[in-house]
Design a protein around this nucleic acid. Structure first.
Lengths: 128, 128, 128, 128
DNA sequence: GTGGTCTAGACCACG
DNA sequence: GTGGTCTAGACCACG
């Protein structure tokens, strides 16, 4: 596991988002064991306290659970995972559409720009 | 002028974005005089140092210019304003499309969600 | 036997309290044999060390006794059971009255709230 | 300010509860400035990180707010303070009545014990 | 001056 | 072995 860190957000937030994405896309499934604080800290070369903070927040969101003495696990509540996915998507969408409107773009402009972006993206990867 | 502040970003960034939007949509036109640090600080009930920082950054981006002894003005270079508009839109778009893909949405999903969002938005305001 | 575990207290404490209550209300009478560590661990799906710890503490309080080679038994000293009951009730009472006073409730407030609570409780269960 | 620490709960929880009580009983009123992390740490002879943790949690409960660069303040939302008071009282009450019933006490027993407790308490302080 | 983050590391409770 | 708490202290962003 590797994460590209940037300086715009605290490391614990970046790791949080990375893990939430892993869970949302199913790379980490419901009930899967999560690496221990110590192991993940070693792997990412980050202080264990920072990892601890990440997990604390994930637990508060209900997406991760501690089983005492056994370690941490992805929640088995699939509805919680769906909720997180929807929350994350809704926030991205709001921020985007809201921001574009504040810049003076119309609904039609916005749709057109997104269509271009996903088409370019596909071409960049797929070729032909 | 009022701004809804949140706690996710520094205040000076929030004021910066607010002013850039005002300029991009033409509420503040090229060559217009900008409120003084003192006045804006009083109006927003913000520490003048924070306003100072905002203007410093806006100047660094070339969208605002100081005329010694006369005050600060929106740049008269319309191309600079267009550049800022494009930069802001591009960043919103990248962040959005990139984020959605990381959550597992396809290009088609993304376009559909945006179409819904702009349609709802229109209905919410205009109605028909 | 099933216990609703929460995360606010160690599991061994929760099991301890559960067993003490069973004894205090007579579900487990003086001299009754207690399930073996092995069996109870299997039944509750808990690490046997945790059950071991529970029994160790119960023995320290004198409410459970080990008969070598025969297993563990509820004490035959009824006075010990009465003492435990009083201790548990006194602690609940102190914590409650003390806590309410620290929140600014008067004695009269406290009595009234308790009267309501036991009345509601009765209605919820008994009806009419 | 002095707090009697015990070992049954983490220090940050004990400080949290202490502050919540101060706010609930009005010793710290809505909008009052709270001591800085550094000052409170020095006063209680506790590590600043521990105080930081306390405030983090209080903020999450909405009873304390950070004004960037200015310090922390008791929320001005009196309804939030009332909510906290009710939550704390309800938890005490539930824990008490629930616990007593599990020990086999009837509603009448419970009311009688509470009446005695508040009467004794009054005598202990006031005398007659 | 104020809070926020992060590192480094100890120690302990729990299972 | 695992997470939870706490200490000690650096450094930085913000106002």
């Amino acid at each position: 596991m590797t994460i590209e860190f940037d300086n715009n957000a605290p490391i614990y937030i970046q790791i949080m988002n990375y893990m939430k994405k892993q869970i949302v896309i199913g790379k980490l499934g419901p009930g899967d064991k999560i690496e221990s604080v110590r192991d993940l800290a070693a792997e990412l070369q980050i202080n264990p306290n920072t990892i601890q903070r990440t997990f604390q927040e994930l637990e508060r969101e209900g997406i991760v659970e501690t089983k005492r003495g056994l370690g941490r696990y992805v929640t088995e509540e699939e509805s919680t995972i769906m909720r997180i996915k929807k929350e994350m998507a809704a926030e991205l969408l709001d921020r985007f559409v809201g921001g574009m409107k504040e810049l003076g773009f119309t609904g039609a402009d916005i749709v057109a720009l997104v269509e271009d972006a996903v088409r370019d993206d596909a071409n960049a990867k797929g070729g032909a």
